[in-house]
Design a binder for these strands. Sequence first.
DNA 1: TCAAGATGCCACAAAATACAACATATTAAC
DNA 2: GTTAATATGTTGTATTTTGTGGCATCTTGA
Lengths: 260, 260
Amino acid sequence: MLAEQRQSLITAMVNQRGSLSITEIQRKLKVSRETIRRDLLLLADRNLLRKTHGGALSLERSEPEIAVREEINADAKRAIGRLAASLVPDGASVILATSSTVQRVADTLLARQGLTVFTNSIAICSKLAGHNKNRVYLLGGEVQAINGATLGRDATAMLSHYFADFAFVGAGAISPNAWVMDFTREEGELHGLMLQSARTAVVVADHSKFSRYAPVRVGNLEKVTHLVTDRPPDPPMAAALAALPLELLVADGQPQPERK
Amino acid sequence: MLAEQRQSLITAMVNQRGSLSITEIQRKLKVSRETIRRDLLLLADRNLLRKTHGGALSLERSEPEIAVREEINADAKRAIGRLAASLVPDGASVILATSSTVQRVADTLLARQGLTVFTNSIAICSKLAGHNKNRVYLLGGEVQAINGATLGRDATAMLSHYFADFAFVGAGAISPNAWVMDFTREEGELHGLMLQSARTAVVVADHSKFSRYAPVRVGNLEKVTHLVTDRPPDPPMAAALAALPLELLVADGQPQPERK
DNA sequence: TCAAGATGCCACAAAATACAACATATTAAC
DNA sequence: GTTAATATGTTGTATTTTGTGGCATCTTGA
């Protein structure tokens, strides 16, 4: 790739995402850290972007990125994400919902090649699009400012045209009788459809979600094939889960022996 | 192979791909590196392409936006954006395409209240969502990494369910006979549909787009009600535009007197 | 506060490319 | 066919770009 091409690509990516770290750029372009740093210095000199510690900011955007939410249980979510993503081989098609845990799945999927991704999360889309020959399809719909997700009839209508190898969905809560629950109806509807639209349907949820309630029941829990979490659930919860034909994967230290 | 044949082949390849390295050219043509270099020097001298270290860039196809050019017309685009956005009142519904000029329209629209926005641009979506009680609908589709736009049948299918007060669309080029042109078929199709899906259909284009060509003709130019630019077009272009029932708005200093 | 890890920065090495000079091949004109 | 003109290939050196490693500096989290 030509130097100028690389530089305008960097500019475009930074402008599109609002900001970009050198490490992220390095993952996409196969050049050394120093080269990128030199490119950023040059571009910053021409006032095409603003250089910061570790990356660059776009001059285009007046509003900063959608605020990064305070991550609770960040370590647990990372571990869950790694384990869940390990199910996915190169070239697979994957549905990814909007959730902080699912985003950790996407982090690990950065290492995969040639994925076909369906998601309603703008953040996940930005992360995976244009990377390792991935094809990313963003579901349409009304944008929720709070988390950068698209929702609504448009999203479900579009998703209904597709079917994938894997679906990864977070849960607002998992009730004591093993229902997956969400906070809004639209969210619940989309998540239910996502789980129906893949051969392997995975719910990711850290332990804080167990034995709790949320207002909306996500349909078709029977379709869930895997539940990935970070701690073995307490006995009643475990019993409720055991009654379902799903595989429980626990991400800390020694993974649970597989059932099925 | 004759020299001229080879040179026009190189020009064609560069224009098709947007850029080409000498090594790539060498792989296709069985001639020495020096010959290619000399060809490129000659072609660059005739302004048929731009030579860079290691290869050449197309002049025609400013599609993989050459960052420098983007910066050169930045002021013009800002002015166009302000003028175009001035058409829009609070509470209106607006369709916004993906383009750097349309993004300047969005900048000004930040000051509006309660807009309903339809867009296929992730950047515009991030800018307007969650602001001033706006409702933002992101069109679904396959994500183009280069500009963060969604395109394809999903996008057109979703848009076809809506109709807005305004549509703002950029142009890849405006041909001498006043066709709006774009670089890819999918882009052209979506832009055409956008212009059909609003009562007031606005094309924004800085002067550098006039009297140029791009590969795809955007349909339904007749539906365009306004063309916003930064300089009065040259006489032949102006004549071609005058034959159409559209209002020409020029953004520098004193806006053109309104016609119609 | 510290320590560890990430990042910045510098100098030099390595690689790729540009350029110039000359040799060879091809073309065109006669 | 010969010859001059032009084009192409080859070679060697200069220049530019990129990579690498060492070390300083910053950030972050305990």
